[in-house]
Amino acid sequence: MSASRTPGSAGLVRLVAAREISARLRDKNFIISSVVILVVLLGAMGMQVALGSGGDSTRIGLVGGSAALGEALEAQGEALDVDVTVVAVDDEDAARTAIEEDEVDGVLVAEGAGEPELLVEQSADGALQSVVQGAVAQLALADQLAAAGVSDLELPQVGVTALDPDADQDGQRVGMAIIGVSLLYGLLILFGQFVAQGVVEEKSSRVVELLLATMRPWQLLAGKIIGLGLLGLAQIVLIVVIGVAGALALDIVDIPGELVGTAVAVVAWFVLAYAFYAAIFAVTASLVSRQEDLNTVVMPTIMVLVVAFVVGIQAASEPEGTLAVITSYVPGLSPMVMPVRQAAGSVAAWELVLSAALMIAAIVLVVRLGGRVYAAALLRTSGKVKMREALRAERV
């Protein structure tokens, strides 16, 4: 009977990664957080649609008046970029009923020889009043010109030249980048905490001693980071796909190509940022043996993430500012700042390559130094271990 074959390094890493994924998929906190993120995202898109659809359309009832008045109301609405629907109403009593039942926003009464009167429930909003006032004035002017014998008056057309025709699209790109960076920040905090909590749980329960009997510390660290990283990547891809599909379906954005590009950039920066911060969270968590002490060692890392997020939001208003440019090259800060600068369209290709290269170099450095600390501190369960002590012990 042959002895069972011991898995190699890759096999052990895969086992740890599968274990982390399975454990988190059964974790209620992970499921709840995922649902909350999706609900917030869909709610934000719904609010955007609601805010965008309000104030750009109106239903106007018309009592009496000529066909020309109805056409003037529609023409004035088109000029003001307001979708006007003219509804014929029999008389003033019917007009009051239509207003009370919210069938129309207001009714223009143009019966008899008197001046037209606009009936509303409480007050006329800006769009309604502008459309009615402009249409009535336009029709009155045409009648007066006709009475004076002027039948065809040519008015000069005013040309419109936009100094920044792409301003709206730039704003949409930056807005999408801010949403992406906010999502990136939230997921890094969430999965960083998962990594840290898992390390402390294994130390406090002495499970790590059993694990290290069959594998090396770096294999355990790699499996933990890769497993939760794949889960985080799947989550952010799912959220991004739902967000992009919802934005396109609800017509929230006018630049689908740019939207997809921004989404891909956010996902790519998530991979780099997660590899960097997950290693730091795991290493710092290995210094303590109790959940009660965890917050003290991970707080500096969380504060760096907070600073990165704040700088990234600030970069939206000044992407070429000194602070935004410098921090877009600083490892740890760049994943929050560079996507916003990219969305603003002010990043050259060499800047993007340099920022990513510096981030990758930082990841290699953190993993190498962090792996030494992790290996030395993992089996020390008596109180809090200092970073210097862990490095000294590992060298010995």
Score class of each variant (00 low, 15 high):
174 V>L: 04
212 L>E: 07
142 A>N: 12
271 V>K: 09
218 W>F: 09
378 L>V: 09
296 T>E: 12
333 L>E: 00
154 E>G: 14
104 V>F: 06
111 E>H: 09
35 V>C: 07
336 M>I: 01
35 V>P: 00
257 G>L: 06
196 A>F: 09
7 P>F: 08
294 L>S: 09
307 V>P: 00
393 A>R: 15
4 S>R: 13
301 T>W: 00
158 V>E: 14
240 V>P: 00
32 I>C: 05
57 S>W: 03
336 M>N: 08
319 P>C: 10
92 E>H: 01
369 L>F: 07
93 D>R: 15
230 L>A: 08
108 L>R: 07
292 E>S: 14
356 A>G: 01
132 V>R: 11
226 I>S: 08
378 L>Q: 09
10 A>Y: 02
396 V>I: 06
171 G>W: 03
341 R>Q: 10
90 D>Y: 00
50 A>F: 08
271 V>P: 01
104 V>Q: 10
277 Y>L: 10
308 A>T: 14
341 R>D: 05
361 A>P: 08
263 A>Q: 03
67 A>H: 00
179 I>Y: 10
103 E>H: 03
63 V>H: 05
379 L>A: 08
74 E>T: 15
187 L>P: 04
188 L>G: 02
5 R>E: 13
74 E>W: 07
45 M>P: 01
351 E>H: 08
264 V>T: 03
201 E>G: 07
53 S>A: 12
47 M>E: 09
288 V>Y: 07
228 L>A: 01
26 R>V: 03
